[in-house]
Amino acid sequence: MLKELSKSNKYYKTIVIILLILVLGVLPNFTGSAVIRLLILTYTTLIMTISWNIVSGYTRFLSLGHSMFLGIGAYTSAILYTKYNISPWIGMIISLIPSALLAFVIGVLTFRLHGAFFALTTIAILQILMLIALHFKDITGGALGIIYLPKNDPMNFFFLDIAYYYYIIYIMLLISLYISYKIDQGFFGKSLKAIGDDEIAASTIGINTMKIKILAFIISSLIATPVGTFYAQYIGYIIPQSVFDLNLSIRIAVIGMIGGAGTFLGPILGAIIFVPADQLLTTYLSSYYGLNLVIYGLLLMISAIFLPTGVVGFIGGFTKWLKKY
């Protein structure tokens, strides 16, 4: 009886997920460009948070410079296109190589040390990459960055209709969610959770904690990097400060923590709540410059005090409480 119930439950869940995927897939046909833009922003932020969650959410090694991968993705494909006429589609794939290498090097150098060294190193690397992008003007355009003129050239990742950008980022999101789900449910994710709980205990039951952490950081970089290429093509303009952005890196970490770090649903709930709220705050508080940042700080403090396990943990606890009574 219980088995049948659980089977039918699974069946309904699958139907709901498929319907949701289809509805979100056809959404651009029924909404205006403002909503599509908000959804694109939500999806890009969500992918970045999913990427952050794989390394920082599960293992608790906090990456505070995670937009470094977004920057590498944006600049690699943009430089390859503007200097060598290589399609950004190919640039997107090529950019995975420097990102993965950088993740490997940072991992090897810092994962042996305390988590604070990792956090500081990620911030430092982000700043160094921004300075490199500012300094090598001939290649990167320096402070002026790289600008694309609007055109319709699908082979080179240019579209005049915003709906195409929506479909691309939507597919990227579905792939990221799939990878994140597989990690969360598999032994790799369980090893990451074990490391996050107690790294010494994990290593004494045969888990190669160094290897697992480095691998997680590389996977994380591979998820975040294509978002950079997408961002460059979608916005049509990149400057060092907009892609190697410390603010964005911290926002990603805040979203992950508010949603529920180290869980599959955490980044999703965090981004759904945070991104539209962020947009509203930015719009309505535009005359009070910086007030939205004060509100984020307060939100983070409130979340750390009252929701230490994030929204996911709160919902889990609330459901248990409901069942009890």
Binding site: F187, K190, K193, A194, D197, D198, A201, A202, G262
Partner: peptide, 16 residues
């Protein structure tokens, strides 16, 4: 004892 609190009892053993 140092269990992995994010994992269930069987998952604690299974990863080993």
């Amino acid at each position: 004892p140092r269990p992995f609190r994010k994992l269930s009892v069987i998952e604690n053993v299974a990863i080993a």
